[in-house]
């Protein structure tokens, strides 16, 4: 589904990602872990197509298409979804209007009739249950005045409405209490299928108790320094990122 080859990315002339290779197949869940500043969010933004993120080298191929040439909305229409680390507040634009516009844009792309207001509300009610989101929230402006937890739930709610093929969840667990974390993880698991794939970006192993990854990658200084199965996450939790750092210093190969 997704192939990243020797990717290098800069923001404002500073190289953040120094060379990443990654392949994600349908039905897989990949976890990307790493300390602060290792380039996790930059990778997510590069995949979603943020303008100020410069791809200086390498390639990103998604469903056989060159992602780099696609605008953010084209990527979204093709099934890429980014769950934001910091969901943006958009005053004055109601959640209902925002999601109705988004869903109907996607339907247009798939040659489907746009949903009427009534049908959309019905569709929304069904999806609300997945993330147990408060009904009142959908009547408000996008993310405006939402608590941290509500914002994150709202990301998963949008994901449920959009039904993406490749979901990239950037620190969706940060700032969540254990109940909210369960709800979010549960939502992700419910949406999982053999046709879609998920990349979970996280700082802590905690989320991975609920979303079981097929692969865990450790990102450090802009590149993946270790890839393994889910046990790697437990090892990281136990030993901390210093274990990676010291390993790097000693020049050991971590890919054992």
């Amino acid at each position: 589904m997704l192939k990243i080859k020797d990717l290098k990315v800069s923001i404002n002339g500073k190289e953040i990602i120094t060379g990443i290779n990654l392949e994600v197949k349908a039905g897989e869940v990949h976890a990307i872990m790493g300390p602060n500043g290792s380039g996790k969010s930059t990778l997510a933004l590069a995949l979603a197509g943020r303008e100020n993120v410069d791809i200086t080298h390498g390639s990103m191929t998604y469903m056989g298409k060159n992602l780099i040439e696609m605008s953010p909305e084209e990527r979204a229409r093709d099934g890429i979804f980014l769950g934001f680390q910091y969901p943006v507040e958009i005053p004055g634009v109601s959640m209902v209007n925002f999601m109705k516009t988004a869903v109907n844009e996607l339907r247009k792309f798939r040659n489907l009739e746009p949903l009427s207001a009534g049908d959309f509300l019905k569709f929304m009610r069904e999806k609300k249950e997945i993330v147990e989101i408060d009904s009142q929230l959908t009547n408000r402006s996008v993310n405006e005045g939402f608590s941290g937890g509500e914002k994150k739930k709202n990301e998963i709610f949008q994901m449920a409405l959009i039904e993406p093929r490749l979901a990239i969840l950037d620190e969706t667990d940060s700032g969540l209490d254990i109940d909210a974390l369960k709800i979010v993880a549960n939502g992700v698991n419910k949406l999982k299928s053999a046709e879609n794939a998920t990349i979970v970006i996280t700082h802590y192993q905690r989320l991975l108790d609920y979303i079981i990854p097929d692969y865990v990658h450790v990102l450090y200084d802009g590149r993946i320094v270790k890839s393994s199965t889910k046990e790697l996450a437990f090892e990281l939790e136990e030993k901390g990122y210093d274990w990676i750092r010291s390993g790097m210093k000693n020049g050991e190969s971590l890919n054992g």
Binding site: R50, A76, F81, I90, A102, E105, Q158
Partner: peptide, 16 residues
Amino acid sequence: LDEDALFYMQSRGIPR
């Protein structure tokens, strides 16, 4: 206009 908000909407499939 807030670039972050524009990108957020684009990332949901809404044309710029």
